[in-house]
Amino acid sequence: MAEIFWGTIWPLVLLIVYILVIVVPLLVAVAYLTYAERKVIGGMQLRQGPMFVGPYGLLQPLADGVKLFFKETVIPSRANKGVFLIAPMITFILALIGWAVIPFGDGLVLADINVGILYLFAVSSLGVYGIIMAGWASNSRYAFLGALRSSAQMISYEIAMGMIIISVLLTAGSLNLSEIVRAQAEQGWYLFWHFPMFMIFLVAILAETNRLPFDLPEDEASLVTGYNVEYSSMTFALFFLGEYANMILMSAMATILFLGGWLPPFEVAPFTWIPGPIWFILKVCVILFVYIWARATLPRYRYDQLMRLGWKVLLPISFGWLVLTAGVLVAFDLVPG
């Protein structure tokens, strides 16, 4: 009996504790990302942002959450009920499971799997299902149009993203996320080696998470709010949480691929005193700031311009860079492993 407990049940309990240690701070981060977004955009537009609930408006996300929780869940009578209810859950769960492979520090990772980057890529490519199912199940024109736009957009930008990831993988010589960061400790951050790819990656993750200037799926001016127009209360909140958790996940991915994950910027005294996870969080925050900055600054793209940018500009450049990377690695005999 004791053997079963220590061999099977205890690791499971530990696993659940680890998962909670990742998920609970993540949800708090999501709540405060909405707050940060409103404050930063407020600052950029010379407004105050939320300031009444709690000191400096710090309790505003809590108030929003409580409000959404007490609203009535309306299911449209002509909706496809099962799919309608599963869609927000899929969006939310997919935004959470990606975190299983993210290394927060050296060895601080829930699942240190060999194909970590492929796993992240798979999770982000599944994200489209939540949206397309929501759009279809709502049985509403606006929602369906939003879903169609969104799936075309996400598939298009995923390809450019894949090419960028392959360039990084070739340089690092591993699909394991921790190994990619360790390779950057030796070779220097890929921000410098792959700088054009870093910029394209930033653009691609904006499109991949349906954020401005590419938020055509929820284009409020032409589609009301797109795929989630029929959703209310907690079902809407799950979409909302999923979108923001995805933003943080994509920022973490960019941090690992280009900004050296948990590594300090310089290997000298005052920087090395700060522990790795803190550096990781700081870098993620920088990329999240870019997300918000883009939202406050840029107007929305038109749909054909979005497709043109993805297929005719970003994809050829990242393809070319991939060939260049491979060529340089082979020519100078730098191929790792």
């Binding site: 492929l118 890529f121 798979a122 490519s125 599944l126 489209v128 279809w136 369906f144 799936s151 598939i155």
Partner: peptide, 20 residues
């Protein structure tokens, strides 16, 4: 992972697209 990325993430999406 390839099964998820290629079939679930791309092929089935297009399939779903057409059927819808």
């Amino acid at each position: 992972m390839l099964l998820v990325v290629v079939y679930v993430g791309a092929v089935a999406v297009l399939f779903l697209f057409v059927v819808m």
